[in-house]
């Protein structure tokens, strides 16, 4: 464990210093973060024009949810996305060889090598909106706040596992970056509470097939103190199952690694 923590620190350090080589990116990224933030808030105010509520959520509650959405989107951009993008590249160019020849768990190594510091403002914006809306809501439940931490971690795990499993198909279909875009498309649905979707098709899709509900709705429910025990257990269960699945799938995929020729 100690070894892995030390390696995480070194990976993060080297990844950050490599990005400092391209500081100009930072400004571009800042601007695009702000645009996304304003867009999300405008979207909300249109939907809640007459403060009627949406799927049983008030405007402030929905703002907590958008905060959660932006926070997780930011964390994904900082922690998950830069790594999964590299995995496809490593398979294509054959530099995965070097990862496989290191005495370290290969999934851990390919999943933790890079952080995108430039996306960090997104995390702050999301977190800020979440806290702001919660304070305005008043009477926060401390159990809810405590529960929201495992729910957010669980949500991040679910995102990571889905992205990771999708990108692992790179071992068979060499160009797969687009498949991640598909997931992002679904992920955008997480800006809205699951109950805002009509019961039936979409709601089932976003709960069981692409578990968007557990990514944003459930952590937000925890924060506003409206979470059920079933949701907590289901979230933890889905995250664990997906995590085990991602490991098994990775092991299986490595068997068909043929190491691009040189």
């Amino acid at each position: 464990m100690n070894k892995h923590l030390k390696i995480l620190k070194i990976f993060a350090g080297s990844s950050v210093s490599a990005q400092m080589e391209y500081r100009a990116n930072f400004i571009v990224q800042m601007i695009s973060s702000l645009v996304a933030f304003v867009g999300a808030l405008l979207g909300l105010s249109v939907l809640f024009g007459d403060d009627a509520g949406l799927g049983g959520w008030s405007l402030l509650e929905a703002q907590v949810l958008v905060g959660v959405f932006l926070l997780l989107e930011g964390l994904t951009e900082v922690l998950v996305y830069p790594n999964v993008r590299k995995i496809a590249e490593m398979v294509r160019t054959g530099t995965m060889d070097f990862t496989l020849l290191k005495p370290i768990d290969s999934q851990f190594s390919v999943s933790s090598r890079n952080v995108n510091v430039f996306a960090f403002p997104n995390v702050l914006l999301g977190f800020g909106l979440m806290v702001y809306a919660l304070i305005k809501l008043g009477n926060v439940s401390w159990t809810g706040i405590l529960l929201s931490i495992p729910m957010l971690l669980s949500a991040l795990t679910i995102i990571y596992c889905i992205c990771f499993i999708l990108i692992t198909t790179a071992f068979w279909f060499v160009k797969v970056e687009n498949i991640i875009e598909l997931f992002w498309g679904f992920f955008r649905a997480g800006q809205f509470p699951i109950t805002a979707f009509p019961a039936g098709g979409a709601r089932i899709l976003f709960t069981y097939i692409v578990p968007i509900a557990f990514i944003t709705t459930v952590p937000a429910q925890a924060l506003i103190g409206k979470i059920s025990l079933e949701s907590v257990l289901a979230s933890l269960g889905i995250a664990s199952v997906l995590f085990v699945a991602s490991r098994l799938f990775w092991k299986f995929a490595l068997k068909s690694y043929t190491s691009a020729s040189s």
Binding site: I7, I10, F11, S14, A18, T95, F98, K102, I104
Partner: peptide, 20 residues
């Protein structure tokens, strides 16, 4: 094929290998 991190001095890649 190369394992060194492209944008960093080789020394930094050495430290990564030291830890691993």
């Amino acid at each position: 094929k190369q394992q060194l991190i492209w944008d960093l001095p080789a020394q930094d890649s050495f430290l990564v290998n030291q830890a691993i």
